[in-house]
């Protein structure tokens, strides 16, 4: 998802009989759905895992601005341009909410950004794919934000209070993102044959990367168990992916587009759509840094950070000067 392959700081799930009294009381709170707050006692691994997960989630929001920002100056109408700007602006805000939540755990935002820029933290694999035409912008809002919503709605119930509250706020805003995307792709799908072709092409290219967002299948997701026990993760990767496929297939059909995967079939017995596995070797390759846009994305982020240094430093120097003058005047 926006946070993929988060390693818990140790392997296996803590057994109750091995827990200290503090750990036991902590687990009881979680089992009773009582939120953990910044000043509560928490196991070091819980803190470390959350910092990684929330940090990666925050990085995804910020890096996620790049593929869409690519189209702001080329939006087909002024209205679409204003809408896209508003969406990209929202993503910056979502990054901020999440960095703030991570900061309540004792890690600074600058430190998280440094770890990202040094390649020691990741962002979601999906943002390493290019946005080649306008239909991609519709498909990103609809499919990518749609997949994010499925994950984030579940995470509203996560055990860490500041993370949960950030998710609640984000979910309220995400609905706009998905709907503007679907609205844009509806216009294409019901437009000229060329537009419809572009819409089909966007769905074909983005389908598998979108369903990869939920991370590897549960069988291969070695770090999930403890995160589930701590309610850092609320639903498994496969559960979330299935939910996304089930809600999205009728939306593709409504557009009159071909399904992007011949394996998609309604399974009466399961009450769900069957679908093909994505190419997981591609997923792991993209995570490793070999996706079509990894290098560009990191270069853009690092450049933005470095080019902005004089502004950050200047404003800080100005604030310090003003504070010193105030002290002198008192």
């Amino acid at each position: 998802m926006y946070a993929q392959m988060i390693k818990t700081a140790h392997s296996g799930v803590h057994k109750r009989e091995d827990m200290t009294p503090e750990e036991r009381a902590f687990q009881d709170k979680i089992d009773n759905d009582i939120k953990i707050e910044p000043r509560d006692w928490m196991p070091d691994d819980y803190r470390a895992t959350l910092i990684r997960q929330i940090g990666q989630h925050a990085h995804s929001e910020v890096v996620g601005q790049l593929p869409e920002g690519n189209w702001i100056t080329r939006a087909p109408t002024l209205e679409r341009k204003a809408i896209l700007l508003a969406k990209v602006q929202d993503e910056a805000g979502h990054g901020l909410y999440l960095y703030s939540a991570a900061e309540t755990l004792g890690e600074s935002r600058d430190e998280l950004v440094r770890l990202l820029h040094e390649g020691r933290m990741k962002y979601s694999s999906i943002f390493n794919y290019p946005t080649l035409n306008w239909a991609d912008i519709g498909a990103v809002g609809w499919l990518v934000d749609g997949a994010a919503i499925v994950n984030q709605v579940a995470l509203q119930r996560t055990s860490y209070g500041p993370y949960s509250r950030a998710m609640i706020r984000i979910c309220k805003e995400e609905s706009f993102h998905a709907r503007q995307g679907y609205h844009a792709i509806m216009k294409m799908a019901f437009g000229t044959p060329e537009q419809k072709k572009q819409a089909q092409d966007a769905v074909n290219r983005l389908w598998f990367p979108a369903i990869m967002m939920f991370g590897p299948s549960d069988a291969d997701s070695t770090h999930s168990e403890q995160s589930m026990a701590w309610k850092i993760k609320v639903k498994s990767n496969d559960e979330l992916r299935q939910q996304f496929v089930d809600q999205t297939v009728p939306q593709i059909e409504y557009l009159g587009l071909d399904l992007p995967d011949p394996g998609i079939k309604w399974n009466e017995e399961r009450g769900h759509y069957d679908f093909s596995d994505p190419d997981w070797s591609e997923f792991f390759d993209v995570i490793k840094g070999n996706g079509p846009c990894n290098v560009d994305r990191m270069k853009d982020r690092v450049t933005a950070w470095e080019d902005g240094a004089w502004v950050r430093d200047g404003l800080l120097a100005h604030a310090e000067k003003k504070a010193a003058r105030k002290v002198a005047a008192e």
């Binding site: 209205e79 204003a82 809408i83 508003a86 706009f176 503007q180």
Partner: peptide, 12 residues
Amino acid sequence: KVYRHPTFFDIP
């Protein structure tokens, strides 16, 4: 900036 609200978009 009414388009910031999800209800701005008519979705069938």
